[in-house]
Design a protein around this nucleic acid. Structure first.
Lengths: 130, 130
DNA sequence: GTAAATGCAAAAGTTTTGCACCAGA
DNA sequence: TCTGGTGCAAAACTTTTGCATTTAC
């Protein structure tokens, strides 16, 4: 149960750097294409593997688009928060709602559920895309 | 822009009947397997098409599991509500949170987002599965 | 009779995996 | 060197689609 090594590879640096240039949620495929066209070529499988790792560690936020596709973003806030996401351009606003956290926890506990996680995301069309 | 015909086929009846026997969220694949083993054989594509239709009409609720798979359920309540779902067995409790509705709408409006939808689901392990 | 619905198989799309090779530490 | 990482291609999955056939109305 000890932590595995974490090697600082060119590919991981590239993924992180590209995410840093992107303020919107992007899919693994989009990120891969973006890197490819930016000259920082990395295998698609590596992009998936790296994003998965970063999501596990909490380095990136992952949400599911309405079609079920996973989208990733390097978030400003360390604390748990939610997102208001433009369905068309991916533009994202981070929002907080401590009341929802408590509500979800309370609700789960009162029904005997443990190991709880919750999703709360808002999708819409931003004014620029309207 | 008129409503298309809605034919009452054996297959649609079978999908609805099977959903009625199921209190948990099921995926299209699971439903298809369940029907098949129950003798009510229906093509997988038809299951997908039917569930899609029912979801559009609001006859079933659709949520995304944590892995992005779509899961469906015939819900008791007509009003918009949310779910507390067991990650292991799919056992589901319907929960309401009117405050979240308002909060989401308000948040979206104040940032200039329109055509808003939101997701709020709680996943956990129920006591029977713990 | 006619438009809608079905079934099948093929296609599309995302994500995962097996494995030989490569490279941090 | 030794173990983890990478790349590629293949595989695994879910979901969608094209099209000939069937069927509800």
């Amino acid at each position: 149960m000890t932590e595995p090594d974490r090697r600082n590879t060119r590919q991981r640096r590239a993924v992180e750097a590209t995410l840093r240039q992107t303020s919107d949620f992007v899919s693994a495929q989009e990120l891969h294409a973006k890197m490819r066209s930016g000259g920082d070529s990395v295998g698609l499988a590596t992009v998936y593997r790296t994003l998965g790792l970063m999501a596990d560690t909490g380095l990136v936020d992952m949400i599911r688009a309405e079609d079920g596709e996973a989208r990733y973003r390097l978030c400003e806030s360390d604390e748990h928060h939610h997102h208001l996401v433009c369905r068309d351009c991916g533009r994202t606003v981070e929002v907080e709602e401590p009341a929802a956290e408590q509500w979800a926890a309370e609700m789960a506990r009162s029904h005997g559920f443990t190991n709880v996680s919750h999703t709360l995301e808002i999708f819409g069309t931003c004014d620029a895309c309207a």
